[in-house]
Amino acid sequence: MSRLEAREVVLGYGDHVVVRGVDVAIPDGQITAIVGPNGCGKSTLLRSLVRLLSPRSGTVLLDGEDIHRTHTKEVARRVGLLPQSPIAPAGITVKELVARGRTPHQKLLRPWSDTDETAVLSALHSTALTDIQDSIVDELSGGQRQRAWIAMALAQDTPLMLLDEPTTYLDIAHQYDVMDLLHRLNTRQQRTIVMVVHDLHQAARYAHHVIAMHGGQVAAAGAPSDVFTEDLIRRVFSLEARVLTDPVTGTPMVVPAHGPGGVR
């Protein structure tokens, strides 16, 4: 079952067409990873799935209805997004930032409610930020800051969470922290997660469903073990690679077939 689907969507900016007729269905309750080379249209596709971009043609369906006919606020109660480079207002604390996630649930002249407070506290708890909730976001480490943004998206309390390159700029330990966090949110809170990632190894380890994009089209979609083949890596990334088995998780592991300098 898919609450979120794109049908034949064509997307672009100005005269430039980026995504050329794509069909995707996001499996409910699973982690979906969108991978592909730079400029293949993966972030563009992600943006269209939360209504940040309207398709030239085709439709994005949320719960079977055209997302562009759904009110912005209503979309924001069902689908959350963590964009690639969000801006933290100067001097904002972790808790204040997380509280901003409640925006779509608030109404004019209605005060902060107990539901809001509970959602914020539980988001802080799931991201292990409770102890530093009063710290200033600008002063946190990269990993903590990313967790704070994820906590904001969590407080939004949407069944679907979309993340655009959530691990970029983080060191390897913090990358896996974020991935483990997303995995917990998926298993414990049954959130459907869609993430654009660059690291194929992470995609293979954490995603149930992988969408590989190339040249604005879907090159392959399915379980990591079906998608990550040597042939697909060659077609999508123009890279000769071997697909090994991760000794820890048994998931596919892509390594280049050539050594440094192109020497075998």
Partner: peptide, 12 residues
């Protein structure tokens, strides 16, 4: 103030 994408995603 958090960026257009974030604002839109938060229902603005």
């Amino acid at each position: 103030e958090m960026g257009d994408d974030t604002a839109q995603a938060l229902g603005v």
